[in-house]
Nucleic acid binder design. Structure first.
Length: 819
RNA sequence: GCGCGAGUGGCGGAAUUGGUAGACGCGAGGGACUUAAAAUCCCUUGACCAAAAGUCGUGCGGGUUCGAUUCCCGCCUUGCGCACCA
């Protein structure tokens, strides 16, 4: 009898799987395909912790399950390896990002191999590989040609001391988060992807996605579609300083409240803001604008609720009432949303109300609060009947919405309009470690995309990664690299020196996996249409960033004729986090990280680790690591192992006697097959593993009757069921029971309902819904007989003294006697 | 503030369509084996009651139903996402 020793059997099987490239996916297969993977990792220096392994435990279990069901499974892996951490690490250590990235990838790959993930390594990809980013760049040029990649001047945060651009989140209280220098805003020309053009399509496709509600609603929220109208307010006075416009256009979702619009508010960034400042107010307005523009968005929203603003001295005409209304500037209006200007209706909008109260502006009620509404606030934002609204008095606000817009449209003062919260995707990065934007700036022809034949635009190797300080990436110092010729006219031209956001690289990798070695094109549509879209995509991050971008790009690919499908992922599995044993997030700085290789090497092995991660709880909820819990799972695997050893010893013992007393063996095993199969289908791994444990416990009890030859098949089936969770042990035991074939591809066991059913069943007897007895009755018993048996039961009789009013029978399960 | 989840023993969790609440695991208690310990195996384990019988029990308060962890209404707590988006 062999002891269970994972440190011996796991390397053995990992070697076998690697040697015969067992998990290579075949493009030409005649089997049905199943394409599954997890979100590819960023290969950091820290390596993966036990929490990261959750994703691979899920993907590998499903991949192995699907293989057994007869699918051709594609489970690839790759590396999202461009990005800031590698670059910062390079600055600190003097190593190049190329070197550190290679080291980290080797480490990650080793970790994945040591858990026995059934990955097709022949399809490994790496976003920093020029053969990969060549096509990222090619896609950029395609977007550019379609008008979906464009340049725009926008304000960026700039730290004069660190000489670098900062993200909004890196500006705290107007100061740099690193050196606390006061930051300034600097206008910079940046590259954007026009995701807003796909806002409606991305929104419309959401209901049909087999994705968690949580993610779907996060995306709906993020896109933030609002239906309303743009309404034009004429400026009352002639503007002195030659402003380009004489009108102010506002966006409103409540055009029905226009009769209550008692003032206008413009964002400080509004193009007319300075021009409107007249008379005594002028200097105060200009000061306010300067101050507001300096504040970060975070400050402007977090300083919150306490409204600030200034009156410009100018007025506009409310197109509905004809009244003059004052024009204010206030930073509670956002420059980047709608038109950057709003009509303020203080009676029916809380923000406008707070502002009006503070600055003593008129408040006119135009929607009557229904009597059924119990609220008493002086500001009411619900629906109701219009008042103080001229010809529209008495109209319901829902109806008035359309009627008023129609009327304004007739007058040439308004038009229906849909607006989105989502902004275009800013993809320029002034950092080194990214894919160069494949654009050549020609004095004659402007921004020209690099032709496909000249791709990739290689990232030059440099020595100094420190950002230079003039708002450009270190590539701007590579004068030789920059100088080139215009692809259109052949004249001298200069390369774009910004790199692309890493999210660009990860927006198409799922398609590259299907055809990773293609050096003629990004992918062959025939191959890609065979594998993609993904049947299952597993991850626990990026609800609105990556998962929105990858949908956006795939929609574009479809429109370009590069794919047949617009949605890249059929089913999304969004798993929870595994927190540390102390209930906090696992992190290096907290010192609570569980290293998976240490767990494996401590003797538990990869099988116990994987099984435990899936046993912790439902995969979509957070859970906490438990060093005691993994011992419990290890105990279970050990019990299964021992059981097979004991059977094997019996089998090989020539003196062994076959027991004739064995009962229920089939019933136990077939019930387990049924339960485990159903549970894996619905991704309820914790209950699948629980029923495997239950099955082993039951077999220990049956074992006391002695073994028989029937046990061979029973144990084989059990081993097959365990395989998705503990593949090394399963392979070893399979071999020990006399098989030389590959367990991975052996058909998943079938159950037979007839074998599960026993001669008797348990029926619960309730009186008035309370449990009073349980009866063991024959399988085929009639309702009449059940009723009689129930009523004859001693304990039931104590509660049923009179003729029952009603008797409810749930076939084969329960009888409830109502008295 | 808005949106989406969640709340069940000492702990992680189960109950798939409204039908025995607490599967499975951890922990705890007891026993077997052992010189002893570890490991292993067996039994017990929601609360109250000596126990049978029973009563109570799924965040709180109502409701629908023969029957509610499950459905409905109103709260509380908590996680996540968005957040002055007009």
């Amino acid at each position: 009898m062999k002891r269970y020793n994972p440190s011996e059997i796991e390397p053995k099987w990992q070697r076998i799987w690697a040697d015969d490239a067992r998990y290579r996916a075949d493009n030409e297969s005649t089997k049905p395909k199943y394409y599954i993977t997890g979100m590819f990792p960023y290969p950091s220096g820290a390596g993966m912790h036990a929490g990261h392994f959750m994703e691979h435990s899920i993907v590998d279990a499903v991949a192995r399950f699907r293989r057994s069901l007869g699918y051709e499974v594609l489970y690839p892996m790759g590396w999202d390896s461009f990005g800031l951490p590698a670059e910062n690490y390079a600055i600190k250590t003097g190593k190049t990002p190329q070197e550190t990235t290679a080291t980290n990838i080797a480490n990650f790959k080793n970790q994945l191999q040591r858990v026995g993930a059934s990955i097709d390594w022949s399809r490994e990809i790496n976003t920093t590989d020029p053969e990969y980013y060549r096509w990222t760049q090619w896609i950029f040029t395609k977007l550019f040609e379609r008008g979906l990649a464009y340049q725009k001047d926008s304000l960026q945060w700039w730290c004069p001391k660190d000489k670098t651009v900062l993200a909004n989140e890196q500006v705290i209280g107007g100061r740099c988060w690193r050196c606390e220098e006061v930051v300034v805003k600097k206008p910079m020309k940046q590259w954007f992807f026009k995701i807003t053009e796909y806002a409606d399509q991305l929104l419309e496709d959401i209901p049909a996605l087999d994705w968690p509600e949580k993610i779907k609603s996060a995306q709906i929220n993020w896109i933030g579609r609002s239906e309303g109208a743009e309404i034009t307010f004429q400026i009352a006075e002639q503007l002195e300083s030659g402003a380009s416009e004489e009108n102010i256009t506002v966006f409103s979702t409540r055009p029905d409240t226009i009769f209550g619009a008692t003032f206008l508010v413009l964002a400080p960034e509004h193009s007319l803001a300075r021009h409107l400042a007249v008379g005594d107010a002028r200097s105060a307005v200009l000061a306010y604008i300067d101050e507001a523009v300096k504040k970060s968005d975070i400050e402007r929203t977090n300083d919150n609720k306490d409204k600030t603003g200034v009156f410009t001295g100018s007025y506009a005409i409310n197109p509905a009432t004809g009244e003059k209304v004052p024009i204010w500037i206030a930073d509670y209006v956002l420059g980047g949303y709608g038109t950057g200007a709003v009509m303020a209706v203080p009676a029916h909008d809380e923000r406008d109300f707070a502002f009006a109260e503070k600055f003593e502006l008129p408040i006119i009620k135009v929607v009557e609060r229904p009597e059924t509404d119990s609220g008493v606030d002086s500001c009411y934002h619900g629906e109701g009947v219009l008042v103080n609204s001229g010809a529209f008095n008495g109209t319901r606000s829902e109806d008035a919405r359309e009627q008023i817009v129609a009327w304004l449209e007739q007058e040439g003062r308004g038009t229906p309009k849909v607006t989105y919260k989502m902004r275009d995707w800013l993809i320029s990065r002034q950092r080194y470690w990214g894919a160069p934007i494949p654009i050549i700036h020609c004095p004659e022809h402007g921004a020209v995309p690099v032709p496909a034949r000249d791709l990739p635009v290689l990232l030059p190797e440099v020595r100094d990664f420190q950002p230079r300080g003039d708002g450009k990436s270190v590539l701007a110092a590579q004068e030789q690299w920059i100088q080139t010729t215009c692809p259109v006219c052949g004249g001298p031209a200069r390369r774009e020196t910004d790199t692309m956001d890493g999210y660009a690289c990860s927006s198409w990798y799922l398609l590259r996996y299907t055809d990773p070695h293609n050096n003629e094109q990004a992918w062959d549509p025939t191959v890609t249409n065979y594998w993609a879209p993904l049947d299952m995509y597993v991850g626990g991050d990026h609800a609105t960033a990556h998962l929105l971008y990858v949908r956006f790009w795939t929609h574009v690919f479809r429109d370009l004729g590069l794919t047949d499908f617009a949605e890249p992922v059929h089913k999304l599995v969004y798993h929870g986090l595994i927190q540390a044993e102390d209930g906090r997030k696992m992190s290096k700085s907290l010192g609570n990280v569980v290293d998976p290789l240490e767990v494996i090497d401590a003797g538990y092995g990869a099988d116990a680790l994987r099984t435990f991660e899936l046993f912790l709880g439902p995969i979509d909820e957070n859970s906490s690591w438990s060093s005691r819990g993994i011992a419990g799972v290890y105990r279970f695997l050990n019990r299964l192992w021992t059981l097979v050893q004991e059977f094997d010893d019996w089998r090989n013992d020539s003196q062994a006697v076959e027991s004739t007393a064995v009962t229920h063996l089939d019933s136990v095993v077939h019930a387990t097959i049924k339960k485990v199969t159903g549970d894996i289908h619905r991704l309820s791994f914790n209950t699948a593993i629980a029923s495997l444990m239950e099955c082993v416990n039951d077999l220990y009890k049956l074992k006391t009757q002695g073994f028989s030859n029937d046990w061979q098949q029973a144990l084989e089936k059990l081993i097959q069921l365990v395989q998705p969770f503990a593949p090394h042990m399963a392979a070893e035991l399979w071999q020990q029971l006399g098989h030389n074939d590959q367990l991975d591809f052996v058909d998943w066991p079938q159950w037979d309902d007839a074998k599960i059913i026993s001669d008797t069943r348990v029926v619960v007897v309730q009186v008035n819904g309370k449990l009073r007895a349980t009866l063991e009755v024959a399988q085929e018993i009639s309702d009449t007989d059940i009723k009689q048996l129930a009523l004859d039961d001693d304990n039931v009789r104590r509660y049923v003294k009179t003729e029952p009013k009603k008797i409810i029978i749930v076939k084969g399960k329960l009888i409830n006697i109502v008295v």
